[in-house]
Design a protein around this nucleic acid. Structure first.
Lengths: 331, 331
DNA sequence: ATAATTTGTGCAATCGTTCCCAAAAATAGA
DNA sequence: TCTATTTTTGGGAACGATTGCACAAATTAT
């Protein structure tokens, strides 16, 4: 099973490579008979154009890059799933990289992807990324970028996000409706857009229910679990919470660890809400209710924007923002 | 920031492209002075060889394919993590595909990867894959394949697996040591090698403890959750189990769903052991003890074998099998 | 029958590299 | 000073595909 080239076909059929090429691309200039012969033969020997040669010629690699903080996270792996689905359908392949929440690696990867001539990039920013200067460099010349989930504050970029405000509002509201009055909010670093939006949803729900907000109940955490304990300790010692709204998978897990260590799960006093895509949250002890993001759909939509851009090279398309709805899981 | 080519450098420095090329690859035939000038200038203009041109010339894409049943599964995403790590370090990139447990898609993907000229493939077989005829076709001519986790029975292929027998033996033994006598085993389809190996570990532990094995306690399940209930029902109605050793993430989750539906988690009667990489199993109610596979390490080792093969083109290397240890998590 | 048009095919350049081969320049030996 | 050798450089083919251009053959019009 050696790879067949145009030249092989040309030689076998006693034609020039150009004729063969044109016949296969169904050019109008080629005789129908010749066309049929060529097509027949190509099928027989299982000819597939060499995608690398095509890339070199066409200056396009039919590959898109994806950068996420971490693959082994349900939200991201589902999003990748969606990206993959759309990309595959449209003849692109997907190259995946992880920033491991490090700006430095993010910079590296972007450069690498650019050097490797991927046609565009989908990215969910690392927690340590404060701005997108390192990406703007590239995105200027015909190198499309779409941000999803963890997006920059900038206006004129492509983004796909969820309605974080509403998600947080609904979750908080739910807890209040169950009689909770001192709802702690453990959330991601304040630089991230998701943090800000969720925080204001939380605050609005409190306000709408005439509950005084207490800054001691709000804790910002990075994604390193060793730093989580401090926040959790402070909460329990000083703030007397009766429910927890936790903004990320990682923090929620640390929290449960700590919670079990303290044997607090025996008491039925507390309620828990997370903003996560953990498929198994309801199996936890005590159960973790969740605001679920349509991760797969986020992936699909992001890929759609990117690929539409790529295939529409003529004029620079307007930057697009898509906002998807979250969903509550409370069972 | 346009991409600089060899020709650009040559023109700027009034040299030929061949000289520039050689200078950059540090050929002995080039004058030191010239070399320095070229290297200096290349650095200044940020020259990066076009990987696509390199691929076309060298007939190698510096890309490896990975096929897994499902990305959104902790075991696989961690394994991919390991693969990525090793590949990235060695200058390869990783293209990921999902078979969704379908042989048909697996066949498609293999062909696609071959057509796209990836240098080799790492694969964990789909549950519906009974043999590897569809892969052998390709792996004959300089297209390396390494199997991991879900591997074929064939002898002369590269494999990376865990010691499934011992993992199952230890888990079963643990349950017995806690006084359990009627340990049910829910496991994957009997065609998979992992199924067979784990089953025999389970049986050996029973035998070593002089416990009569009962075929009613053994249930094979595919990966479709709607088919799991039947098995679970039968177990509870006819077999009076007091512990469960469950061989896969997916089945374990179905099981917990059902278990909670029946409100059985109020009783402390049962114990649970899984053969999974769910990071959060101990947070479940009741807790799920686990046999953990070194997923990351499996990825690294698999990638190592593949890349070593690729870089050692001279003679066909002997097929390698690596068996890694599992680890028990019982807290 | 001759010119004009249509139709079918091939040549060669291109994309960015590498590398064989030959040519030019520099050095050595006499 | 003039070969002989070594060092350094350039020309051009190759990798596999596409495509503008030229040209031959076939067809039609006059």
């Amino acid at each position: 099973m050696e790879q067949v080239t145009l030249k092989d076909i040309a030689k076998a059929l006693n034609l020039s490579t150009s004729t063969v090429s044109r016949a296969l691309r169904d050019s109008y200039q080629i005789n129908k008979k010749t066309k049929n012969i060529v097509i027949e033969y190509a099928k027989k020997v299982n000819y597939i154009p060499n995608p690398i040669a095509l890339s070199l010629k066409g200056n396009t690699s039919k590959a898109i890059g994806v950068i996420v903080p971490e693959i082994a996270n349900h939200f991201f792996s589902q999003a990748i799933n969606g990206i993959e689905d759309e990309a595959y359908r449209r003849g692109y392949h997907v190259v995946i990289f992880q920033s491991h929440e490090s700006l430095e690696r993010e910079v590296d990867i972007i450069k690498h992807l650019y050097d490797r001539r991927v046609d565009g990039v989908l990215i969910s920013l690392s927690a340590s990324t404060k701005n997108i200067d390192h990406i703007k460099n590239y995105s200027e010349n015909n190198f499309s970028v779409v941000y999803f989930d963890r997006v920059p504050k900038d206006e004129n970029v492509n983004k796909v996000v969820v309605d974080n405000f509403k998600g947080a509002y609904d979750a908080t509201n739910f807890l209040i409706s169950k009689g909770k009055k001192r709802i702690a909010h453990l959330t991601s670093p304040p630089e991230l857009s998701i943090t800000v939006e969720r925080l204001s949803g939380y605050k609005k729900a409190l306000a709408d229910n005439k509950i005084q907000e207490d800054s001691n109940l709000i804790k910002f955490c990075d994604f390193k679990s060793k730093n989580h304990n401090k926040a959790i300790n402070e909460l329990f010692e000083n703030s007397n919470p009766d429910a927890f709204f936790i903004s990320s998978d990682r923090i929620a897990l640390s929290f449960y660890e700590e919670f079990q260590k303290r044997k607090l799960h025996k008491k039925d006093k507390y309620m828990f809400f997370g903003f996560t895509n953990l498929a198994v949250a309801h199996l936890f002890n005590p159960p973790l209710f969740t605001v679920v993001q349509p991760a797969f759909e986020i992936g699909v939509q992001s890929a759609k924007i990117l690929l539409d851009n790529l295939e529409n090279k003529k004029d620079k398309p307007e930057p697009k923002t898509i906002i998807l709805k979250t969903q509550m899981k409370t069972n």
